[in-house]
């Protein structure tokens, strides 16, 4: 089993992200975390990279493609983008990338605020199960998981990655 230590993975993402920003010559990027786990990760990265612009947060529930199945949930905090995204280089941060649907929704929402110059995707865990052509620019680790296995980030203090194995089928009389 790979290392699921959040601190180690965060260090990898931060290092890779710094290298990526240097290589591409991006200055003053705008970091945006996706509620809820992505925001926890983004806060740490934002501090680690010493970014000047305040952190943005995104609640993609208005853009989800499963509204017709599950409706809306009011618990998640609304999106907050303190700086205009127009013509800015954006680092989009999430905890786990699986189907790619969350990122699709996040990109749609970002484009409703303006036209960014570029979007870089940083995720803590890139796991198997993609349903859309979405790939991370920077990732802490890649995991090949069974479709029934779930990995989720618990937090905010301390941040912990939990791997949930599928429950054994219960036989009913």
């Amino acid at each position: 089993m790979s290392n699921l230590n959040v601190a180690d993975l965060l260090k990898t993402v931060a290092t890779e992200l710094k290298r990526h920003l240097q290589q591409t010559g991006i200055e003053k990027p705008l970091m945006i975390g996706i509620h809820t786990g992505g925001v926890w990760i983004a806060k740490q990265l934002h501090r680690e990279l010493g970014l000047e612009e305040p952190l943005g947060t995104l609640n993609i529930s208005f853009y989800r493609d499963d509204f017709t199945r599950i409706g809306v949930h009011p618990q998640v905090k609304p999106s907050r983008l303190p700086v205009t995204v127009e013509n800015r280089h954006i680092i989009l941060v999430d905890d786990v990338l699986q189907t790619g649907r969350t990122i699709r929704a996040a990109l749609n929402e970002i484009f409703d605020y303006g036209r960014p110059a570029s979007v870089t995707l940083a995720v803590l865990v890139d796991r198997s199960g993609r349903e859309l052509p979405v790939e991370p620019t920077v990732t802490g680790t890649h995991l090949e998981l069974d479709a029934r296995q779930q990995i989720k980030l618990e937090g905010p203090e301390p941040l912990r990655l939990i791997l949930l194995e599928p429950e054994l089928p219960v036989t009913q009389e």
Binding site: N59, S61, F62, Y63, F67, V72, P74, Q75, V76, P78, S79, R80, N108, E109, D112, Y113, G114
Partner: peptide, 23 residues
Amino acid sequence: VDILDHAENFTSVGNRSVKKIPL
């Protein structure tokens, strides 16, 4: 209370450049 909480989230849509969400 649910209606009020939902409305709280929807107020932000009116402050954006594109005042539209795809729900």
